[in-house]
Write a protein that binds this DNA or RNA. Structure first.
Lengths: 202, 202
DNA sequence: ACCTGAACACCGTTCAAGT
DNA sequence: ACCTGAACACCGTTCAAGT
């Protein structure tokens, strides 16, 4: 099933990234080992250093690709709910939590410490995801007849809300409240924030 | 300056915890090493295993003590703002972000993966912190003349909000919006959520 | 240009042995 | 009961050497 092994792998860089995503999904951030990723790619532990300056660089590339697919999912959910801004926002929230739940390791890598700050590519991908959220907020506010001024601030609030719910759900802190479905917690709060934003400007 | 070294340290467990908190503050979660903590406590790398079953157990104890002081800070802020529920809530939010900003490593350990789920003590301390927040929400709703039903749900929303803002601030994702002061983002959103909660029940 | 082989420092963990 | 000493497996990283 495996392709003919040449001395030169040919696409080692992406093979390492794919293996790393697997490891992240299987055992969380601590399971992400450069050595194990190399082993799964069929090379020695020293080989990755031709493509990444170290473990942190692999993590940054992981975060970049994570933000990329994350942005695509969010954007797809937004398009799906249009032109009803409220329905689109609800779909986005659902897609957000779905991504975090299905890829907790990747999500943690994306937001883990300064991994994204170091890599400009990852930072750009993250900014792009935020842009999508920002446009959604603007559309909602316009639909509600409220001026879009301060929409970025509101977008930040909603992002923090989604991030907080996602992280608490991943770490299991949301479970004690058995009645607390993450999606409901998020949607309810988003409604509140948006209502307040609309009224404050009217 | 160091006490007379006996063969039996006497209070090694707490010494390890203190050293671990230092390491967390200095270099983040990845810098927390059982071996280095032992070194700072003046014992060999094997000594900690008489007090902790492993690195994860030390992390759980760290989370427990972190939640304990965290709960105290939150409660103190609440008492400070009383009897004005809104002012008390604002003080709590400020104390929340202050703790996360001053002890980012400890905060990360408290909410990192399943560290708290494993240890019942840490889970209890976390629940206690949530209780304080819950009582604050109830008081605010009562003051606003709204029934306190669903207050736990609202408390969860506010916790998620505070957690999200704190995490985004720590990881540097809040910086791109230069105008976004974490405290302002949090306060504004809390206002919105509380206003919506008050009106939904009236 | 890309990868192997061997090496070093370091960490988590175990266990027999010391006090 | 508590700690040391020695040991093992494992990982990150480097570098000279191979293709």
């Amino acid at each position: 099933m495996h392709v003919k092994r040449r001395y030169h792998h040919g696409s080692l860089k992406q093979a390492l990234v794919d293996a790393a995503i697997e490891l992240l999904a299987e055992g969380g951030p601590s399971a992400l080992t450069l050595t194990e990723a190399a082993r799964r790619a069929g090379v020695t532990p020293a080989a990755p250093y031709r493509h990444f300056s170290g473990r942190d660089a692999l993590l940054a590339e992981l975060a970049r690709q994570g933000f990329e697919t994350f942005g695509e999912r969010i954007e797809a959910a937004w398009d799906e709910g249009r032109p009803d801004a409220q329905a689109a926002m609800r779909a986005m929230c659902g897609a957000y939590l779905k991504f975090a739940r299905e890829e907790p390791g990747l999500y943690a890598a994306m937001f883990g410490q300064a991994a994204t700050l170091a890599d400009p590519g990852a930072g750009g991908a993250a900014d792009h995801a935020l842009e999508i959220l920002w446009r959604a907020v603007v559309a909602w506010l316009q639909e509600a007849g409220a001026p879009a001024q301060g929409a970025r601030h509101v977008a930040m609030q909603i992002w923090a809300l989604a991030h907080g719910v996602a992280m608490l759900a991943i770490s299991g802190h949301l479970d004690p409240c058995k009645t607390a479905d993450p999606a409901l917690v998020l949607e309810g709060a988003v409604q509140g924030v948006m209502a307040a934003a609309g009224k404050a400007k009217t």
